[in-house]
Design a protein around this nucleic acid. Structure first.
Lengths: 189, 189
DNA sequence: TGAATCGTTCAGAAAAAAATGAATGATTTG
DNA sequence: CAAATCATTCATTTTTTTCTGAACGATTCA
């Protein structure tokens, strides 16, 4: 229903909202993201209607700054859908429910760059060592063996990441139910 | 008895050591672990001989407390091998080079518990909602749809984790080179 | 048994990360 | 065009994490 109460009143989170916020807060911290990101996503996920930045900040009692930053994260991962409400200049957000989509973006933005950077670093280090030769301070055979291990490390991890990409490329086992009940049209005049 | 250098001189890290320490420090931070953990592993990885806790603390110029804590982490993940040197009461460590082994332990210790905890939390939340029914403050069809999405989330992620487990269960593509040059035998237990 | 050596633990210090909120720039409305 | 609305940015404050180092218990050695 339409919110009867006006400003300054903290609308008190329902248990439903609270549970989802807590849940995604944990997920967020597991992924090494600020907890506010999880909070925001949780609130959006719990909400049937799209919410504006101010809605979110007010409901969660966090600053607009944090909210803005958090929404940026979520946008980066395509974890949030931006919807436009007629007659309202503000931007409204709702939670993306497609896991694959989010996971792919997350991998691309948060994981791939690191893996790639490690690869570069390894290549560089190897070059340096090959140039410096035995001067580096350790036995050549030993360093050679270590370099081999490093390559294995990198290849192994990169392989795991590739596997994740593939896993999230295709829709999961459940069979794609297009989430009918969420498809409410809200853009009203 | 066999104490060669008892002075306070920090032996100055070689470029080889420095490079590896930096590298694993980055990996460590990526994984959400204290950077000292990465430093310690890097130093061990760079060193042909096993090192004692004091060796590590001294070379890295970090406190014994941090070193002890860091070594605990590494032991948890089987990222470190404990070796016993004859005539020395202290414990010596060297880096485990088998990626699979480390990855498996890491998954088991750092990832699996979270996934499981999420699962519990979801089951619990679902129960609560089913009991509370429409009282929870949102339309039943909507909450039902959301719960379905949550299940998909969890299953999807759990699937990814299982995939990782499988990936690291078997030795990686490279064909098992038994790491001959590292296989130095010193008093084992 | 007593002195010495080891490794761990934990309260406090230091460092790092995140949140805040006012200033900023951009866009729209009257 | 000026006023108003909106989202972002950034210097500062707050919170969280990590490191430190001395105290402690355990073990070994003489």
């Amino acid at each position: 229903m339409a919110e009867g109460s006006q400003d300054s009143v903290a609308p008190a989170l329902s248990p439903w909202e609270q549970a989802l916020i807590d849940f995604f807060m944990q997920v967020s911290q597991f992924l090494g993201l600020p907890k506010s990101v999880g909070q925001i996503f949780g609130l959006l996920f719990a909400s049937e209607q799209p919410l504006s930045l101010d809605d979110i900040a007010e409901r969660l009692q966090i600053s607009r700054g944090s909210t803005s930053t958090g929404l940026n994260y979520l946008r980066r991962f395509d974890a949030v859908r931006q919807t436009f409400v007629l007659g309202d200049r503000r931007e409204f957000y709702q939670a993306e429910t497609d896991t694959s989509r989010i996971a792919q973006s997350f991998l691309a933005d948060q994981v791939d760059p690191d893996i790639e950077s490690w690869g570069e670093r390894l290549r560089f280090g190897r070059q340096m060592l090959e140039l410096a030769g035995p001067l580096a301070g350790a036995k050549p055979e030993f360093t050679a063996a270590r370099l081999a291990v490093l390559d294995q490390w990198h290849g192994d991890i990169a392989g795991a990441v590739k596997l994740m990409h593939e896993h999230f490329r295709r829709p999961p086992s459940g069979g794609g139910q297009p989430d009918s009940s969420t498809g409410e049209k809200h853009a009203r005049g």
